[in-house]
Design a binder for these strands. Structure first.
Length: 406
RNA sequence: GGAGGGGUGGCUGAGUGGUCGAAAGCGGCACACUGCUAACGUGUUAUACCCCGUAAGGGGUAUCGCGGGUUCGAAUCCCGCCCCCUCCGCCA
């Protein structure tokens, strides 16, 4: 949020933040901001005097001003700290045309594919375990709940999907990026992943944080830089999430786990391009799901369901036969300048000014959930799984059936 | 992990308490010159924030890896941290 514009937009912005249920008092923010500016001006004025005295080598005047200045500087620092803390918790302003309310108020704005008619569909756990490609029990033994092992063809399937995506995204002009999966505090803060969201993040004893998505390391890549736009990246990473506060949710299976692999798309664009870029990211996601032959619906999230950084988010929900409903497998967000402001990522306008970029991110594929959808939607009568055509050239098999290990 | 060296503008690099937001060179931009290009010449060339101004612009503050300290005054002195380089050790 641009504090310079806060006073003029106080009412509108407060309304917008209220829509997403943010507990933010912009009036308070404005107050602190103005107080900060006031003491800042005083301090700078005094410092100018001190500099004059210093230049004249007027030791006495310098001493006198210096002691006064010290107090003022402490005030400036205190106001700045208070302001920073307040601002850190202000989420992005939601887009004006998104629905009010929370998770249940998301609006279905499109569908793709048609669910197959499967009699007595089995769930991904039964399918995966009977095929010997998924072992949840041993994952739990090794690391506790919400961990799992993938085996044999499931492993091959994952790498096939990755290869396919790399080709697809490279073709679409994304640069491929493979980066750190541990990030420093500065990088995490810039993306807005600490602060209120800190519960979700694993921290190491060296004060590095395990990333919850490649989005974080892509953003960190251009931290503090002025870059040419548009710039598009696709990055693979393992993702680590504490899933604090999700007790009891999706405990069965691998829909919600502490660790999963994901390919993420990320765009840095000029502000006037971001709405269109968002649509394009979603279009790519749809192309991916269509390629994998998974039926889905497209959901425009309600204001109350947005993450801190997002102004607008569209989820793709894949059909899960065993649950007889759609579940989120993809998400694409326009974060406008929210992340860019914190990460100080700018571009040069035609007139030579540096302006904040807009950042957008979207799932290409989150392997865990995609595996769930693939197994369940492509199960056949005999419990085998058919592999979608787009992956055939990346695999030596066209279906997964039980293999006997001797 | 141990020992030593070092982090200065887009780049190279000088600067060890005031005359330093910072020499010089390169690069960039503008102008002039040339039949065109190149070279030469002249000028210009960091960022953030604050204030005044409709604006052009003007003034101020801060920034020499980051944070703190000493001092009337810090790129320069002191402390802590981060990063890079060299050597040794360890290691996929």
């Amino acid at each position: 949020m641009d504090l310079k514009l806060l006073e003029d937009n106080l009412y509108t912005w407060q309304e917008q933040l209220n829509r997403r249920g943010a507990e933010v008092d912009l009036k308070k923010v404005l107050e602190v901001y103005q107080r900060y500016l006031e003491v800042l001006q005083k301090a700078e004025g005094l410092r100018a005097e001190r500099n004059v005295a210093a230049k004249a080598q007027d030791i006495e005047a310098g001493k006198r001003i210096g002691s006064e200045l010290k107090e003022l500087e402490d005030e400036v620092m205190a106001a700045r700290t208070e302001l920073d803390e307040l601002v850190a918790d202000i989420p992005n302003l939601p887009d004006k045309d998104i629905p009010d309310g929370g998770e249940e108020n998301g609006k279905v704005i499109g569908v793709g594919g048609k669910p197959r008619d499967i009699t007595n569909p089995r769930d991904h756990i039964a399918l995966g375990e009977s095929l010997g490609i998924l072992d949840i029990e041993r994952g739990t033994k090794a690391s506790g709940s919400r961990f799992y092992y993938l085996k044999n063809q499931a492993v091959e399937l994952e790498f096939a999907i990755l290869r396919w995506l790399m080709d697809l995204l490279k073709d679409k002009g994304f640069e491929l990026l493979l980066g750190p999966q541990l990030l420093g505090e500065k990088a995490m803060l810039a993306g807005g992943y600490l602060g209120k969201a800190a519960d979700e993040v694993y921290k190491t004893q060296d004060d590095l944080y395990l990333i919850g998505t490649a989005e974080q390391s892509i953003l960190a890549y251009h931290l503090d830089e002025i870059i040419p736009v548009p710039k598009r990246y696709a990055s693979f990473s393992t993702c680590f999430r504490r899933e604090a506060g999700s007790y009891g949710k999706d405990v069965k299976g691998i829909i919600r786990t502490h660790q999963f692999d994901k390919v993420e798309m990320f765009s840095f664009v000029a502000p006037d391009m971001s709405a269109r870029e968002h649509e394009q990211l979603v279009a790519i996601q749809e192309e991916i799901l269509q390629g994998l032959e998974i039926p889905y619906q497209k959901v425009l999230l309600a204001a109350g369901d947005l993450s801190m950084a997002a102004a607008r988010t569209i989820d793709l929900e894949s059909w899960l036969p065993s649950q007889n409903r759609h579940r989120e497998t993809h998400s694409a967000s326009n974060c406008t300048d929210w992340q860019a402001r914190r990460a100080r990522i700018r571009y040069k306008t035609e007139s030579g000014e540096s302006e904040l970029v807009h950042t957008l991110n979207g799932t290409a594929v989150a392997i865990g959930r995609m595996l769930v959808a693939l197994l369940e939607n492509h199960q056949q009568m005999d419990g085998s799984i058919s592999i979608p055509k787009v992956l055939h050239s990346y695999l030596s098999f066209k279906e997964i059936r039980q293999i006997t290990v001797t």
